Each structure stands twice: as C-alpha cells, then as structure tokens.
Measured scan of single mutants.
Amino acid sequence: MKVIFLKDVKGKGKKGEIKNVADGYARNFLFKQGLAIEATPANLKELE
C-alpha cells in the first residue's frame, strides 16, 4: 500500500515521502498513530 508519511518514522520514511509499505503495517500502526495517510489521488493532490 502506498502511504504519505506525515512524520519521520525511523527506518521507514521521512515526512512528505511517498512509499510502499505492508498493508497491515500501514493500517495497524502508521494510520492509528497518525504517522501516515493513504496515498489516494485526493491526498496526493493536497500534498502538492
């Protein structure tokens, strides 16, 4: 799953980066902790 990092995550990505991560990792950790959001077309447009 592609995500947009909202904060730096050690060993995974830095704020503003778009990366592929495991679905479970994204849903169970990154999204719940507010560290990333899903890289949907709408979210990508907001990032620009």
Rank of each mutant, 00 (worst) to 15 (best):
L35D: 03
L30W: 03
G34W: 05
I37Y: 05
G34V: 02
T40Q: 04
I37N: 02
E46D: 11
I18N: 00
K15L: 09
L6N: 01
D8L: 03
L35S: 03
G13Q: 03
K15Q: 09
E46M: 15
N43M: 11
K45W: 09
E38P: 14
G34P: 00
K32I: 14
I4H: 01
K45R: 14
G24A: 14
K7Y: 11
K10A: 14
I4G: 00
D23T: 14
P41K: 10
E38L: 10
V3L: 03
A36R: 00
T40F: 05
F31M: 07
T40V: 06
G13F: 14
D8Q: 04
K32E: 14
A39Q: 02
E38T: 04
A22P: 15
A22K: 11
N28T: 08
T40L: 06
I18Q: 05
I4K: 04
K7L: 09
I4A: 02
L35R: 02
N20I: 15
L47G: 06
V21N: 01
D23P: 15
I18H: 02
K19P: 01
G16E: 01
F5H: 01
L44G: 04
F31N: 03
N20A: 11
E38Q: 09
P41H: 11
K10H: 13
K2Q: 11
V3D: 01
G24E: 15
R27G: 04
I37P: 00
L44K: 06
L30Q: 01
L47E: 06
A26M: 08
R27N: 08
E38R: 08
K45M: 12
G11K: 05
R27H: 10
G24T: 13
A22F: 09
L35Y: 09
K7Q: 13
L35M: 08
I4V: 08
G11V: 01
G24W: 15
K12W: 15
T40H: 05
K14D: 07
F5W: 03
N28G: 10
F29Y: 15
K10I: 13
L30I: 01
K45L: 12
G16W: 09
T40D: 05
K10R: 14
L30F: 04
E48I: 14
D23R: 13
E48M: 14
E17H: 04
F31G: 03
E38V: 07
G34A: 07
F31L: 12
L44V: 11
A39W: 13
E46W: 15
L47R: 09
D23M: 12
A22V: 10
Y25E: 08
N43G: 06
E48G: 13
K14N: 08
I37H: 04
R27W: 12
K10M: 11
N28M: 10
Y25S: 05
L6S: 02
N28Y: 12
K15P: 05
R27K: 13
I4N: 00
M1Q: 06
G34R: 07
V3Y: 00
K12A: 15
G24V: 10
I37Q: 05
Y25T: 05
L30V: 00
E38M: 09
L6E: 01
D23H: 13
K15M: 10
I37W: 05
Q33I: 07
N20S: 14
F5P: 00
D8T: 10
I18K: 02
L44S: 05
Q33R: 12
E46L: 15
G11Y: 07
Y25D: 06
K12M: 15
N43L: 12
V9I: 08
K19E: 03
T40M: 05
K2R: 14
E38H: 07
F5M: 04
G24S: 14
F5D: 00
V21W: 02
K19F: 06
V3P: 00
G34E: 07
K7M: 11
V21F: 04
K12N: 08
A36L: 02
D23S: 14
E46I: 14
N28V: 05
I4W: 02
A36T: 01
Y25Q: 06
L6A: 02
A36I: 05
E46S: 14
V3W: 00
F31S: 03
K2D: 10
K19L: 11
R27T: 11
L6T: 07
K12V: 15
L6F: 03
E38A: 11
V9P: 00
E48R: 14
N28A: 09
A39V: 08
L35H: 04
N20M: 15
Q33F: 15
N28Q: 10
N28F: 09
N43D: 07
V9A: 03
E48V: 12
A42Y: 06
E48P: 09
V9W: 05
K7P: 00
A22Y: 11
L47H: 11
K45V: 10
V9Q: 02
F5L: 08
K45S: 11
K19N: 04
A42R: 11
G24L: 10
F29Q: 10
A26L: 13
V21Q: 02
F31D: 04
A22N: 14
D8H: 06
L44W: 06
A26D: 09
I37M: 10
K32S: 11
V21Y: 04
P41M: 10
V3M: 02
I18E: 03
G24P: 11
V9F: 04
F29A: 08
A26Y: 13
Q33N: 15
L47Q: 09
K19I: 10
D8N: 09
R27Y: 13
A26R: 02
A26Q: 06
G16F: 09
F31E: 07
K14W: 08
F29D: 12
L6P: 01
A22L: 11
Q33S: 09
E17Q: 11
G13A: 12
K45G: 09
K32F: 08
G13Y: 12
R27M: 12
G34N: 09
V21H: 01
L6M: 07
K10F: 10
Q33L: 15
E17A: 05
N43P: 04
A22D: 15
V9G: 01
G34Q: 07
V21P: 00
K15R: 12
F5I: 01
I4M: 07
G16H: 07
G16S: 03
E48W: 10
V21D: 01
G34Y: 07
F29K: 08
R27Q: 10
G11H: 06
A42H: 12
P41D: 13
A42M: 10
A22M: 11
G34K: 09
D23I: 15
A26F: 13
K32P: 15
M1E: 03
D8I: 02
I37V: 13
K45H: 11
A36M: 01
K14V: 09
A42F: 07
L30D: 02
A26H: 04
